[in-house]
């Protein structure tokens, strides 16, 4: 059991995709205009990551090396489409607010990266835990960034108003604010990790 816990902690802390590995930057920056958007994007990615890690760890011996990338991409794209259809059918608000970035989960380098570096070398159970760990790390990164941007930009967190919107610095919701907020968050994380 300890081994699996370590895998989760590793994904969350040591190989945090947002602050340490710096992978999957497109959705990280684009969808974090509010805390709730960041959280839903993180969970959507985590779903695809866990499923694709699981299936790929089963398929690892059945795919010849030369065609492993197309097979992995097909598996990931399938889960992304499943997710897309499910969201459209049952949670249309989330589908509307994340828009283009749902199909773009396919090219999120976190997912293909984990398939290559973890799921293709480990068993199904370990791969699931790796998906959970990395997925949680990614969700945490996106939610934290979303909270900071929503708070600084519009004075609320998860829609709860903390100070009047007119005092917010709008720039943090706009594209430049995404880069700058993440830049400072990374600096803080670096400081904590003692790099």
């Amino acid at each position: 059991m300890k081994k699996y816990l370590d895998i989760i902690v590793n994904g969350f802390v040591k190989e945090n995709p947002t602050f340490v590995l710096m992978l999957g930057m497109c959705p990280t920056l684009a969808t974090t205009t509010s805390a709730i958007n960041g959280l839903s994007m993180g969970l959507a990615t985590m779903f695809v990551l866990i499923c694709s890690n699981l299936v790929i760890s089963f398929l690892k011996n059945l795919t010849p090396d030369k065609v492993h990338i197309p097979v992995y991409i097909a598996v990931i794209a399938t889960f992304v489409t499943v997710l897309q259809l499910m969201l459209k059918a049952y949670l249309p608000e989330i589908d509307a607010s994340l828009g283009l970035f749902i199909p773009l989960i396919v090219v999120n380098c976190v997912i293909l990266g984990r398939a290559e570096s973890f799921a293709s070398k480990n068993g199904p159970l370990a791969s699931i835990f790796d998906g959970i760990g990395i997925g949680l790390g990614f969700t945490f990164g996106l939610t934290l960034l979303g909270i900071c941007r929503e708070f600084l930009g519009s004075g609320s967190v998860f829609g709860v108003i903390l100070f009047p919107e007119s005092y917010g610095a709008l720039m943090f919701i706009l594209p430049p604010g995404a880069f700058i907020t993440l830049g400072f968050l990374v600096a803080i994380v670096n400081k904590i990790r003692g790099v």
Binding site: K60, N61, L62, T63, P64, D65, K66, V67, P70, V71, A74, V75, A77, T78
Partner: peptide, 23 residues
């Protein structure tokens, strides 16, 4: 389990199967 080799037959079969299953 032995990993499947890079023969043309293996590759074609795997890719076709993946395409069918995902479809």
């Amino acid at each position: 389990m032995q990993k499947l080799g890079n023969t043309l037959v293996n590759m074609t079969v795997v890719l076709t199967l993946v395409a069918i299953v995902t479809g």
